[in-house]
Structure formats: structure tokens, C-alpha cells
Simulated scan of single mutants.
Amino acid sequence: MRILFTVANSPSHIRALVPVVRAAEAAGHTVGIATGAASAGDIAAYGIDHLPAGLDILDLVARTLEKTGMTFADLTAMERTVDFFIGPPAEAMATDVIETGWNPDVIVRSTLEFGGVLAAEVLGVPHASVAIGGAVNVISPPSTLAPLMAPLRASFGLAPDPTGEASFRHLHACLMPETYDAAEATVPHSRFYRHENPGRRGDALPPALAELPTDKPWVFASLGTLSAFASDGLSLLKSVVTALTRLDCVAVVSTGRDVAHEAFGVLPSTVVLVESVPQPLLLECCDLFITHAGHNSVREAMRSGVPLVCTPLFSEQPYNARRCVEAGVGEQLHTETMTTDDVLAACRKVLEDPQYRSNARRIRRDLLALPPLETFIADLQSLVGSGLPNSG
């Protein structure tokens, strides 16, 4: 079976699909990832075949924000979906996939990539989606997608889809248990599978981290790959770092590539700044995760049973943070008013109350009880074998 995965060329979006791609490879299928040419290095780091296709989404975001003078946070979730994922990005992805002659038997798209739907229907093959972000039922439900996808469907000669359900026509994979977000099951044709943490070739923790003290709680902090698009991203990170210097802990803070560590001043030896670190590996030995509440980060924390302090910035992150609070696995801070004292108080609350850890472990058990990704691949094979027609 030939399985083509389509995804916007955001590192976090690609990362979310990697375990699914590897499950397909392990089952003996031919796989490829169709995404922007700028992500060639990122794809190569995972050891996966890359089919250059579609637009450079990160470049599109940067150019749009520069042109409008807005920040990523100024846009609503729907505006971001329309501007950066539907319209020209979906049209470009569909056109490139159709014209490459790769000839997939099935297309699997990330939930914020819509060209895969169009390409699959033109090629007459089934398609599926994988929930790489939270709040799919809120940000891109079928009723919202219908008018947005209508011009694209018409331009590719596809039948109208007045309900919007064509984007979820065959199979939608949820990678978190219903106990985390029962609303995810409202997406048409949803099934739940077990999230597996991704990893790059040669991933290992820096040796210096292994030498840090083990007689204090370990805290990991990261505001995600898109924090650079937040106008106050650096000041928020500084508040987190300052709070961690006052907390009796060992802290590792991932700053990202474009942040000068000198900006944080002299820090105690128990607060270590790194450009990046293999997040799933570090979470295995942490007691608390301070995070922007991106869906990847929440999933990876729950896979290790680690409670959270959430500092959501934009997109579906506030929704994810609320779900963490409602599930009892973390606390949410409001970045518009967040102070160092707020960060410190939230960290102490989560670390000192064992119920947060207990609830995170409960979600972890529920996640581990889900069918493995191999089952998702088998379900894809059943779709292909059934000869389901595309009614588009």
C-alpha cells in the first residue's frame, strides 16, 4: 500500500505525524510526506522520504504578519485557518500532489492541511485525517469548513459539499483519550488510537543535564516553536526563568534558536538554558512541565504522566490549557497579565499537590489502553481494500 501524508511545513505539525508514518513503514508500506520544500532538513532528520509540495507556511505567516503589522495572537483561530491553511496553501498542495504522479492508495492529512482532501478526491482514493492539534471540533468543524472549501472544490471539478463533512469522509484519528477531550469524538468518523512520542535520529539528552542534581524536583519549560510569532514571547520567557530561579528545583528551559541567553543575566547552576532538547526524553525524568499548551506538548507530557503549568499564547492553545485544567492535570496562566509571582505560585501549587500527578497518570493509563497506531494503519488498509468510492 502506498500512503502519502500531507502536512503544512510547520515543525510541530510534521512532528505530530512522525509516529504514524513510522507505524506505516514498520508495517511494510511505502510512505512519503508531502510538505513544503523548506522542511527538507526537518524531514531528513526523521529519516523519512520527502515529497516537496505546497507552500512554505512559515514564510507565508511571516510575510502576512509583516505586511499587516499584526501579531499571530491578533488573528482569531478561524482567521489563521483561512489565511494559512485553506485557499492558496490547500490549492498548491493539491495541485503538486496530483501532478507529481506519486499515485497513493490513500492520503492521510494533518487536520490543518486541506489540500490532501482535494487531491484524494481528484485521484479517486480514500483519505483520512490525524488530529495533530487540539480543538478540531471547535476550529475546523464540518459546518465551518463547508463555505471555505466550496470554491476550492469547484476549482478542482469536485461535487459540492454543503455539509462540510467531505473533509472527514472516511476516518479521523484522535491520539488522546476521550477522558482528555470527549468533544473530539464529535468529529465525523473519529476513532481513538494511542499516541507515541516521536524522535529524531540520534536523539539523546545533553550529557550536562545528566549531571544536574537529583534531590530536587525537575522542571522543564518551553513555549514552543511558534513563540517567535508572539510579540511578548521573550518577556514571557523571562518571567518563567525568573520564577524558576526562585523555585527550589532543577530547571531546564528551552529558549529556541533566536534568543540570546545573555538576555537572562547570570543564573544559578540549577537553572539551565538550552536552545533545544529532545522533549519526550526530558519529560521522562521531569516532575513539572511549563508549556504553551500546544497539542504536541500536552500529548507528550501525558504520555509520561507529567503535570503542567500552561501559558497559552494563541490558536488552540487556550482551549488545550482549559482542557488540562478541567482534567485536573495542570494550571493555566493568562499570558496577558502573567507575572513572575503568578508563575511561581502556579508551579508551587502543582508540585506540592500530588493530585495533579495522580490525574496525569490516570490520563496516561487511559492513553496506554488505546489501540496502537498499527491499528490505525490496518484501518487505512481496510479503507483501501473496501473500495470505498469518493462521492466527490
Rank of each mutant, 00 (worst) to 15 (best):
P206K: 13
L175C: 02
R22G: 05
L247N: 04
E66N: 07
L209S: 11
V18W: 01
T95G: 14
A73K: 12
S386A: 15
R194A: 11
R80N: 04
L118D: 01
Q381G: 12
G87H: 06
C310V: 05
T242C: 06
C347G: 08
F220V: 11
A92D: 03
S10C: 02
P213D: 12
D56I: 08
L60G: 11
R194Y: 00
L288E: 04
A26T: 09
V130G: 08
T71F: 02
V259C: 10
H334T: 08
A38Q: 08
F314T: 04
Q317I: 03
A53D: 06
S167E: 15
D74W: 09
P162R: 12
V253F: 08
S140I: 07
L65P: 00
D232G: 11
L171K: 13
T76E: 11
V240M: 03
C285N: 11
G392F: 14
T81M: 14
E91G: 04
G36R: 01
A159S: 14
A327T: 03
I33Y: 09
L288S: 07
T179Y: 07
S227F: 01
G224Y: 02
E316A: 13
M338T: 03
F220C: 12
R194K: 10
I33K: 08
I57L: 14
S235V: 02
V272T: 15
V241R: 03
T214Y: 01
A345M: 08
V259G: 05
G305I: 03
P372K: 06
M149Q: 10
I14W: 04
F5T: 00
